[in-house]
Write a protein that binds this DNA or RNA. Structure first.
Ligand SMILES: [Mn+2]
Ligand SMILES: [Mn+2]
Ligand SMILES: [Zn+2]
Ligand SMILES: [Zn+2]
Lengths: 158, 158
DNA sequence: TGCTCATCTACAACTCGTGCAAATTGCGCA
DNA sequence: TGCGCAATTTGCACGAGTTGTAGATGAGCA
């Protein structure tokens, strides 16, 4: 994703207005590696701009995604996440805390795929599921768990 | 997925009852390669057993999934699909008609993944997006499109 | 400064799935 | 074969997540 200043220009160039709501979201997304959901961004935005509506957050995120500045990421369950990292990359999802981590896969293009004869592939996305490092250590060790697995952001309850 | 007869035994062995509703669903899933949704199975089941409830379909599918007889497949958007093919395999999703095809990927285990240090991977699922063969030929050729892309099962409307 | 169309907010609606409780039924057992 | 009861079915409500809509509001431009 471009930095906020350039996003403002890109919006104006498209005939879209640069509103305080949008600028706030530009800032919240800039350099954000947490793969936030619309709801999550709404909560953060509301802290700085009480009264902002969830609808506006969705609209802005959709605009950014259409401009290619944001990559929507479906992790298999729960809300869609929005990723300012538009590199060609994939994701690891922790089944305990729900955190999503960037994963760069080398050689994905040279995979041998059987069964898709005649299929024209436009994109491939890989989701790794498992346990992130903090969750693995906090459950492996029999010591008291400082993070009870249901208080972190977007916990999974399958 | 086991054949219906063996599923009946497996259910009874678990203390689950073998009802007409469940037997009907066993039959609809047996050898089914269409990756149906709960709603889709409900429609098919309703044709043979009017009055069956969508709730019962969900319950039975959940039971089968917990027994490992069915694999829930998230394709990134829309309803969860249920796959009687529990092999280790992946999926191609057509962006035009929404059809889901099995894809067997060779060498997926030996992929080099960067960025997931400390992450314990339990599973990896790959979703290929693009155009299936029928959709590709019907849109490439400038002839009249016999399938207007919105009448097939589970059309995508992004 | 004033105009005007895009945007914002509030609210309804919609999709997919789950929780719940009353009525029904499979099935082990006498 | 007939009982008894736990499992199941059904219908409905509810919840999360997302989108449609319309009137109020405001950004950008002359
Ligand atoms: Mn990412
Ligand atoms: Mn499959
Ligand atoms: Zn974790
Ligand atoms: Zn297709």
């Amino acid at each position: 994703m471009k930095p906020p200043t350039e996003l403002a220009e890109a919006f104006r160039a498209r005939g879209l207005k640069v509103t305080p709501q949008r600028q706030l979201l530009f800032g919240l997304l800039d350099g954000n590696t947490s793969h936030p959901t619309a709801e999550g961004l709404f909560v953060e935005a509301s802290a700085q701009m009480p009264g902002i509506s969830l609808r506006t957050v969705y609209t802005t995120l959709t605009d950014l995604a259409e401009m290619g500045e944001l990559q929507p990421v479906s992790c298999g369950a729960g809300a869609i996440r929005f990723d300012p990292n538009v590199d060609d990359h994939h994701h690891g999802v922790c089944d305990s805390c729900g955190n999503v981590t960037d994963a760069y896969v080398v050689g994905a293009e040279s995979l041998i795929v059987e069964g898709l004869d005649g299929f024209t592939t436009n994109s491939a996305s890989i989701v790794f599921r498992g346990q992130c490092a903090p969750c693995a250590s906090s459950t492996d060790e029999s010591t008291s768990n400082p993070i009870p697995n249901s208080q972190q952001q977007t916990p999974n309850t399958p």
